[in-house]
Design a protein around this nucleic acid. Structure first.
Lengths: 356, 356
DNA sequence: CTGAAAGCGCTTACAG
DNA sequence: CTGAAAGCGCTTACAG
């Protein structure tokens, strides 16, 4: 016989009905009782002889579940520019997938146009191959997300989501930037720094906003005035200049700032790091590894991947055991770019005013 | 309605049969003709209204094909030790998958025991979710490979296979180590080197054997005696010593040799690289990036991934258009560790004898 | 041009 | 304890 053996083949050989074969294979827990020992043995023998294995597609169709978890990234999963942004997430997801016993489906059939993968007509239907999906990266347009919810398709986001996003609450696994940023800021304060600049993304996206929030909170506690600067607005040299202009002895640098360049610019300008100026990095720079020895915090990407997979599995099962909004702690890096404030406070060269 | 709409729902709404809906969606190319314009419009309207999308599982079951390509690695796809051996392959596969329009399934449900993923009972059946599979890495045991062939399950290997392997010819995409090694060797010969050592894996695995083959071929052409040394047998310092002992002015280093350490050991021993000793690396070191500036060749992993996916797609289609045994050219790196032979030939300190 | 039917390979009530 | 049947949601000959 040339085609793959089916339950019907096995049944024929064993002299039982096809349904009995199914029962032997995966009947309810009391199945041992439900099928007579005689038939049972013959079925098992026939399975061995034919080399039968179940067709997972048919099982999926009949059961309505597949043991496949999808991964949808709005950019390429494996960027060809060599950077591998998603890699740590995938490491975590794979480890957990092995554990949970699901396969990982990468939606590579959805074409990437202009760097963005779209959930086109074909994309939508492919989604259903998986029992649910993990979404990573800059999320798609609202229409797509809305549609996902309408379909009640199980989804977990990697990255913080606002409850107001799309419509309703979406399960996510994020990193607690607020807490981590606050912690670093407090550390700076403890080290005697008073003027601490935040140089980073000032926009309203949750990840940016949370960092600002943590910074503000720590500064408020200490009754010091926050100094917020837009990280995208300055060259490294200008950044150093503006930090000094504010009379700051320490700066928090967001991941959109080229911290290595800023440090280099400081040295060039005769500003010692950390003797004159302490620097801390708020999470891995975009598309680059964390610069060795830099103070700041790292994003727990591997753990985020693992937790996302676990969460999705629970969402698929429909059990509410897991918190649908998970914020994981970041790992603080001590590094050597952060030290006590210089004893003689530098004097601001321009009047410091609170940004609006 | 709470469940996902089906063709039956659409048909009901449009007042046609379920089969007609299917025909409208994906009838034969002459389908426009086969369904009347009236029904056609009504079906299309109903689809829009219900938001119907086909269930890919059901399609797969009915069609017997799925548009999913599996990736089976005998180790973790994403090793947690940070090294990402498979990454370049996946880059290539993803790019091609987008093009071919298939999704990539990572078989993460197969448990990894003792670092090896096994095709267990459950693993076997999961395989059938995909239309075929790309196998990467140290391949599994013969029983598994044999069984794969027995099942006529479409498979493509990444990495050179011997025709004698398993039983019969297996499609593969490999790198042409023989040609690349020969090319480097010839380059050394052109640069005036006469005593050229091959220090690497001397075992019978195809990738090792091919390198030796290329080296031998080039040396034979030039009527020079090959000097083969087992790369695993020496510390870096010993390696330098033994290379010098053979009076060699150039050495080819296999990927199991820590080339950076060897170069360092040479410097330490007062041997200038490349002035006194030219070095070339025969492909990326295991689990490490290619050392910048080193002469030698790189393995075209991205391209191999892409070609493997393309080949598998063609195997699945059953067309024989593509060569089932593909050897891709490696990229030669000029580097600065390879230069002309020293004008005054070094004299061997021990009698050189041909290894057996 | 269109409908009714069989079949893809399973699971799961439902009768006996 | 076991078999016959219906159903999962499609595709694809086969009749009309």
């Amino acid at each position: 016989m040339n085609r793959r053996p089916t339950q019907a083949d096995v049944a024929r050989m064993a002299g039982v009905s096809q349904a009995t074969v199914s029962l032997v294979l995966n009947g309810p827990s009391n199945a041992r009782a439900r099928v007579g020992e005689q038939s049972r043995r013959r079925v098992l023998d026939a399975i061995r002889e034919t080399g039968y294995v179940a067709n997972p597609l048919a099982q999926g169709l009949a059961r309505g579940r597949n043991r496949i978890v999808g991964v949808f990234t709005y950019e390429s999963v494996f960027p060809s520019d060599g950077s591998n942004f998603y890699h740590p997430f995938l490491v975590g997801m794979e480890a957990e997938a092995v554990d949970v016993g699901v396969d990982l489906l990468l939606f590579t059939s959805a074409p990437v146009a202009a760097g963005k993968r779209r959930l086109t007509d074909s994309g939508w239907n492919r989604l259903d191959i998986a029992d649910g999906c993990i979404l990573i990266g800059r999320v798609g347009n609202d229409r797509e997300l809305h549609e996902l919810r309408e379909r009640r398709y199980p989804v977990v986001y990697i990255g913080r989501r606002d409850p107001s996003d799309v419509d309703g609450h979406v399960p996510y696994v994020g990193a607690d930037y607020a807490a981590a940023t606050a912690e670093i800021t407090r550390r700076m304060l403890q080290l005697g720094h008073r003027r601490i600049v935040f140089l980073g993304d000032l926009s309203a996206v949750p990840s940016a906003r949370d960092r600002v929030l943590g910074y503000r909170r720590a500064m408020d506690e200490a009754r010091h005035r926050p100094i917020l600067l837009d990280g995208g607005a300055f060259t490294p040299a200008e950044a150093v200049q503006v930090i000094r202009d504010h009379g700051a002895t320490a700066a928090l640098l967001g991941p959109n700032v080229d911290v290595v360049a800023v440090r280099a610019a400081a040295i060039t300008a005769g500003v010692q790091v950390p003797a004159d100026l302490s620097l801390a990095l708020l999470g891995e720079p975009e598309n680059e590894p964390y610069p060795e020895g830099f103070a700041g915090f790292r994003i727990p990407r591997v753990e985020m991947g693992a937790r996302a997979l676990r969460l999705l599995a629970s969402v698929i099962e429909g059990d509410d055991a897991l918190d649908p909004a998970q914020l994981l702690a970041c790992r603080v890096e001590v590094g050597h770019t952060l030290t006590s404030a210089p004893s003689a406070p530098t004097s601001p060269t321009v009047p410091v005013k609170e940004p609006s």
